[in-house]
């Protein structure tokens, strides 16, 4: 399974659209794209997880290292439209309490 990564800029914030699976094979790709963005002072990076159905703990590692980098570089990161199953991984590891996460809203999806 592949992971495709698209970057768009909207209202002065960066949005990374991810699509596919984040696992040991695709995580290095994500790290390579995401980490440099967190190093730009004052940026807000939104990671759109709408099309991510699977993420293993290696993917979590990438977001943890991005989180550490946002703290060092005064940037911000928010994960949006997170699938229920993927959200569970953030919850178990306790990351839901220290990261800006927004689960997927089923109602909103149907209407939008």
């Amino acid at each position: 399974m592949e992971l495709s990564i698209h970057l768009t800029e909207k209202n002065n914030s960066l949005v990374i659209h991810l699509s596919g699976e984040i696992d040991a094979y695709t995580a290095p790709q994500l790290k390579e794209r995401l980490l440099p963005l967190t190093k730009q002072n004052g940026t807000l990076i939104k990671v759109d997880m709408e099309a991510v159905q699977y993420m293993d703990s290696t993917g979590l590692g990438v977001f943890i290292s991005a989180l550490k980098s946002t703290k060092e570089n005064n940037s911000k990161m928010k994960l949006i439209h997170i699938d229920e199953r993927v959200y569970r991984v953030f919850k178990i590891t306790g990351l839901d309490e220290i990261m800006d996460l927004e689960p997927r809203n089923k109602v909103e999806r149907r209407n939008g």
């Binding site: 943890i64 989180l67 550490k68 590891t93 306790g94 990351l95 309490e97 220290i98």
Partner: peptide, 9 residues
């Protein structure tokens, strides 16, 4: 249980 993974903070 609740608790953050080791090595994050």
């Amino acid at each position: 249980t609740k608790g953050l993974a080791l090595g994050v903070l």
